[in-house]
Design a protein around this nucleic acid. Structure first.
Lengths: 242, 242
DNA sequence: CGCGAGTTTGAAATTCTTCAAGATCGGTGG
DNA sequence: CCACCGATCTTGAAGAATTTCAAACTCGCG
């Protein structure tokens, strides 16, 4: 192992800096200047690991930090008074969690790990402070929030105007693009979420998700084996979205 | 008229400053210190009037500013490739428009006035600059963006997990609260949007909106006269939401 | 080996949409 | 001033998409 084994006060300190991180192109620092990125190293407080099914935060928790997913998968979900759950997003490597908390100082949704995961903790007070000094960071952070708003509008389009087939095709397409952007296969991937979670996100029942995936397979668009998906006919899937 | 009639370079200049605005409690400056608010006066570039059915901006327009609704109503809508429209929000006095544009530098939705309206134009570059100097403004702006994200999650809950009745009850309830917060009647108000626009927002067809309103009326929950709504049984309506 | 969580599939039930026909309203031009 | 027009809204009946209920299957794990 070429890594230095020197014992340090914080065992993972050598990696809890943005300038050393492999996610520079995907995460918050996208597009910042190198000299700015070095100053970013003050930003990340620590890493935090969350086991599968563990909560990163819960609705009602005081808001103190946002989180950059370093590794793994999360879902965010809001809980209705009567117990109904609505999944509002699935977050993968390089994606930011916790922005909902800024509004009231209290988180308004749950963030739950879909598999063993790790996040960088970005204390919010420090982010505000540092982004007053680093215009590049300030702008990048605003872009991240705005992108979340635009994404949410896309989900509204899905939920409000599209049929089950279209929703699921768009969902698979979106996953494919996000894997692709991270250098993973765009054609073949593993779903980290259950049919029920997909259904909640897409406003469908799990049976409808299952049936629709089966239909896609019959039509030769994809191959499904439980959670393993292979996209066989990209344009066919694309055409479904309209 | 007690207003000074002195001709000035910018005719409305005396009013295009936040410190003189009646919306201090509702708009971007909420909660800021008075000394900060005075410095805010540099922020608002100008006012802009938009006629009913006019566009404040369109998807594809370059992003230069965000807008604070001073007066009137807007809808924002995303357009799908095949022409389907999804209304993503209705904005009233004191609410901010245009945040979608920060993400890519290009607006991703249309903003259309539902009646003759007026906005304060807040050049985005100036906002970023000023919010580096004014932590209160910085934080307030972040809260506005975060609130939009939280609102969007609420809409996802509506669209993904609630039935037509629940969606419409929640919609009316939400309008009522927003009127109330601005000192208008919470029980009686005028809808600025058509049944079709309500339907698009709620993921329903206009006929379903119409039928559901009629049912509410039969059940004694509300009185409908075209676009005029009176809420007769607040708790009854509240109970529908669950 | 068997349990439980997750999934698939079928058939019936429900909700919402579609299609269709009038009704109503506000504004315009004669 | 009034008739008329287009846009919007209401209501009914039939149809379609999705959900609900039910049963059986698969797989990983203790």
């Amino acid at each position: 192992m070429p890594e230095p084994k020197t014992a340090v006060a914080t065992p993972t300190a050598h990696a809890t800096v943005c300038s050393q991180c492999g996610l520079l192109e995907t995460c918050l620092p996208v597009g910042m200047h190198t000299d700015e990125i070095e100053r970013l190293d003050q930003l990340v407080g620590q890493r935090r690991r969350i086991q599968r099914q563990g909560h990163l935060y819960r609705a009602g928790d005081p808001f103190e930090a946002i989180y950059a997913t370093r590794l793994g998968w999360f879902k965010t979900a809001v809980l209705h008074a009567d117990g109904r759950e609505q999944v509002t997003g699935f977050q993968m490597t390089g994606e930011i969690l916790g922005l909902d908390g800024i509004s009231t100082g209290t988180h308004s949704c749950d963030a739950i790990a879909l598999e063993d995961s790790e996040v960088c903790v970005i204390p919010y007070a420090r982010l505000e402070e540092l982004s007053r000094a680093l215009p590049g960071l300030q702008h990048q952070f605003h872009k991240v929030m705005s992108r979340e708003i635009v994404r949410d509008h896309g989900v509204m389009m899905l939920l409000g105007s599209m049929r089950a087939e279209e929703r699921l095709a768009a969902f698979l397409f979106n996953l494919s693009q996000r894997f692709d952007a991270r250098g993973f296969s765009a054609n073949e991937f593993h779903l980290r979420m259950t049919r029920n979670e997909i259904g909640s996100y897409l406003g469908l029942k799990l049976e409808t998700v299952s049936r629709t995936l089966s239909r896609f397979q019959e039509d030769g668009l994809i191959t499904v084996q439980k959670k393993h998906i292979r996209i066989d006919d990209f344009t066919g899937l694309r055409d479904l979205i309209g």
